[in-house]
Design a protein around this nucleic acid. Sequence first.
DNA 1: ATGTTC
Length: 413
Amino acid sequence: MPDVHWGYGFPIGGVAATNVERGGVVSPGGVGFDISCGIRLLSTTFDEGDIQPRLTRLMTTLKRDVPAGGGRGGIWRANDRDLRRVLEHGARAAVEAGYGFTEDLERCEDGGWLPAGVGDAVSERAKARGIGELGSLGSGNHFIELQIVDRILDPQVAQRFGLREGQVTAMIHTGSRGLGHQICSDHVREMLKALESYHIELPDPQLAAAPVRSTHGERYLSAMAAAANFGRANRQLLTWAVRRVFEAALGRGQISVVYDVSHNLAKLESHQVGGSRVELCVHRKGATRALPAGHPDLPGVYSEVGQPVLVPGSMGTASYVLVGESSNDAFFSTCHGAGRAMSRHAAMRTGDGVELRRSLQRQGILVETRSVASLPEESPEAYKDVDEVVRACEGAGLSRPVARLRPVGVLKG
DNA sequence: ATGTTC
């Protein structure tokens, strides 16, 4: 994908499909450490004029109510049984516990959950790291952003997505936190020990892999599904927090899910390859699934137009909503964001966090964070131009732009 | 991305 950059084992912005029936492998490095990291977009019944006078209050409350940064707890004080339900049922478990509505799930990839039996493929350590982080933002490039629909590029599709010019939206970017990270580490280690038994030779241990149809492959995929469920429940819990914050600041209004989609996941999918249907294990790492109109896996509400694709820019630049295209020849995948142009280390040398925050504020973007000092890691300078990335995807026939969103408030981890 | 090195 055009937002490609260096990553662990596989690049971020990469799509790799393996043929399951012919011994194709699954590789944790092809998914990434932050399993099921992804974006959820919320539409609101509010307009820019409704939130501008209360923006400071909205952002302060959001910062107060959303645990962010490392090890700061989660919204849901979950017990072992709650965690188990989350690992097995994802966003559905969060909704059943009162953190949202059944309608939310309809507008999530996979209905918000993948079937996952939680055996010993999810280690006790992974569960211990996850239980206190249910409903937390994390750090790095994770954020909650309040945006204004700046431009509608495809009116018909935008209408179906529930988007109109001047409308307030909220974008949530987070993943599976320490739990997903631990699952990735655990399974890379397990697979490395088993390489010889599968006759796999690798140029680099970061490419650790096992056949999809093998003990190690199946164990990873079931743990990965549990982590994906955690990530989706996490975004559902943050949705609940956003709804509460809006209600406290602005009173009654409606906040709906536009879509929720992962950009770090491997999925078993059926695709047309060389004239026949084959079962593939499609790894998307920093790449977003983008189903075209008419695809059977789409929820009914989007079946006629195609899947919403949620593409965040960098902090302080626009984000996009795209839609899947039938001309997509990348196993129905497209970009996932602007993509880094600088390493975190190089980005830290571009300037001072306090100054960056001030400069964004001058552009009408209120930034709240617990760590101003690390803000330059996420400086817009450190990222590619999202408008160009989106154009490249359109030119390649991967996806088509539907709406451009401009930020007014950002909560960073 | 991450109890930023088990």
